[in-house]
Amino acid sequence: MIIQTTNLTKTYRLFEKEAGLQGSIKSLFHRKYTYKTALSDFNLSVSEGEFIGLIGPNGAGKTTLVKMLTGIIAPTSGDLSVLGYYPNKLENTFKKQYAVVMGQKSQLFFELSAGDTFLLFKELYGISNEEYKKNLDYFIHLFGVETLLNVQVRTLSLGERMKMELIVALLHNPKVLFLDEPTIGLDAIAQRQIRSFLKEVNETRGTTILLTSHYMEDIKSLCKRCIVVNRGMKIYDGSTEAMFDRYQTHKKITLSFTEETAIELPQNCVPVEQNPLKSIFMVPLDISQEIIYKLMKEYSLSDISIEEDEIGSVVERIYNEGQVKR
């Protein structure tokens, strides 16, 4: 196992203060703290070469887990081993074997070109000249960023910058790559490019990848295995395909009408938003075709869009099922 955690728990101490001037003065003399368990008794085993998706709503504990696995923060209790190391010891031999990319944080120097940061990381990780040249050539071609290497980072688009972040992270051939929302804020084209890049890195280089994302497409197209976290607890760990088959039970349909229409939703449909010119509702997957056909026949539509269930709904269903079992 490349990653192993047993009963991993992280509790944060939070400063609490009543609103208002009185609250501020009170807190000068009497500090009040609350404790929040961000991750609770979390067990995880990851084998070499796996591509795992980590999903869950905001505040579920995903980023806390990534921060503990990379040694940025120390666990409150439990056992933890990544590549045979205890991450929070922050040993250089450990750091040279993994990389982490956080969607909204950067390792690039904005005043300089990405090429300058690459040179810095070449030395930081002790990459030989041949390996550096080989890896750099490989990645810049894969991403198609040959012409951007010497451009000031500040002037790059968000998508271009993310590609450079990934190149920085992968230059030293890490065994494990942690990705925290790498596609956040990117347009559809950039998202697709990054997905295909990550897929290639995982398949051709055997890099173990742990990916957190809010985008269904990231998880579906990349991760064979998926872990769902909610309120600091693991509520699903298994095949991504099986999870979506079982829990992605609805489609979201948006109908736009040519004129003001009072629509009567068929049975089993759950309304999301209704107004005379637009109707958004959820339809059970197994009867979606039949309902779409019926609606198209009955109403005068100017547009129709069919989307898959959002990750949030899937997580909610898994969570609710767990609650019912308990």
């Binding site: 005043e111 300089l112 040179l119 810095l120 030395e123 930081l124």
Partner: peptide
């Protein structure tokens, strides 16, 4: 030592970015 030298170099480069 080379890695520290590279840190020195990159910081120096940022100092002379704007003419």
């Amino acid at each position: 030592m080379r890695k520290y030298l590279e840190v020195i170099k990159i910081l120096f480069k940022t100092q002379i970015t704007y003419r």
